[in-house]
Amino acid sequence: MIPHLVFDLETIPDADGLRRLHDAQGLDDAAVVEQALAARREAVGHDFMPLHLHRIVAIGCVFRDDRGFQVRCLGEPGDSEAALISAFFKTIERYTPRLISWNGSGFDLPVLHYRSLIHGIAAPRYWDMGEDDRDFRYNNYISRYHTRHVDLMDVLAKYNGRANAPLDELAKLCGFPGKLGVDGSQVWPMWQQGAIDDIRAYCETDVANTWLVYTRFRLLRGEIDQTGYEQELAVVKEALAALPGSHWQEYLAAWAESVR
């Protein structure tokens, strides 16, 4: 098996960036962000911030290769955004994995692009489109229809945004746990409460869901057969059962309940 890297970001509004852009010196982070969210709602009817103003606070990953299945958030809870981004791109530099995401083309990768630009983080392997490695001319991470990055939501929707489906619902319909009571809209309040461990736990379960749905997709494509599919689910269950953290106990319990 070639290395596969499933990834998902958790972000909060970039208070420092907002302070710089809107000359809001003297205001604390909460006040700066609430002011920006209110202005955004007034301007466009919702408070989802432009992608370049999302600060990354967690990057959840599943890494799957011949050695096994691993799931975790990169770095440590107190690491800077730049350190998290560097760790992500260093993994690509080292392993050249196939990237798997749900809406990675629409959200996660553009955010990583903007934030790595802001921090000046080089990622030559990721950005290569054939200049250094000839094979990347025909299959690279940047081109939408190549397979070095598979945005599973985009592929399943036939690249039609009107057909997009939410990961939580698809996972549950396939018999997987889906989200465990947390969604992305809650990350900023959780961050304000200092609940970074809970944010990271939520992010980890999201990439587990993505890998499970991708495994079902591999079955559809004929990449694995029914036996291989069931074996992969067993590998994931065994790996998760060995991990610390109450979120994995809850996740496995929800998985068992979903297939009854």
Rank of each mutant, 00 (worst) to 15 (best):
G130Y: 02
L233N: 07
P166E: 10
E257H: 08
W127M: 12
E204Y: 02
T91C: 10
A15F: 08
A256I: 05
R260G: 12
W248I: 05
Y159F: 15
H146M: 10
Y159I: 01
I59M: 05
L5G: 02
G26Q: 11
N139W: 07
A163P: 00
P50T: 04
P97S: 00
D151F: 07
D197W: 04
N139M: 13
T227Y: 08
G178R: 05
H54S: 11
H146C: 07
F48N: 12
W255K: 00
G245I: 06
R94I: 10
A30Q: 14
I199N: 04
G245E: 07
P50M: 03
H113M: 09
I92D: 03
E230P: 01
P189D: 11
Q231R: 14
S86Q: 14
E81R: 05
H149D: 06
F69G: 06
P244T: 04
W255G: 04
E81T: 08
R41C: 11
D133Y: 12
V236D: 08
L74S: 01
K179N: 13
D65N: 15
D135A: 15
Y114G: 06
M190A: 13
L21I: 10
G161D: 06
C73W: 00
L243E: 10
Y141L: 00
D29P: 09
N140Y: 02
V150F: 01
E93P: 01
C61W: 00
W255F: 12
G184T: 09
I12C: 06
V57N: 04
L74R: 01
G104W: 00
V236M: 11
F217H: 15
P166Q: 11
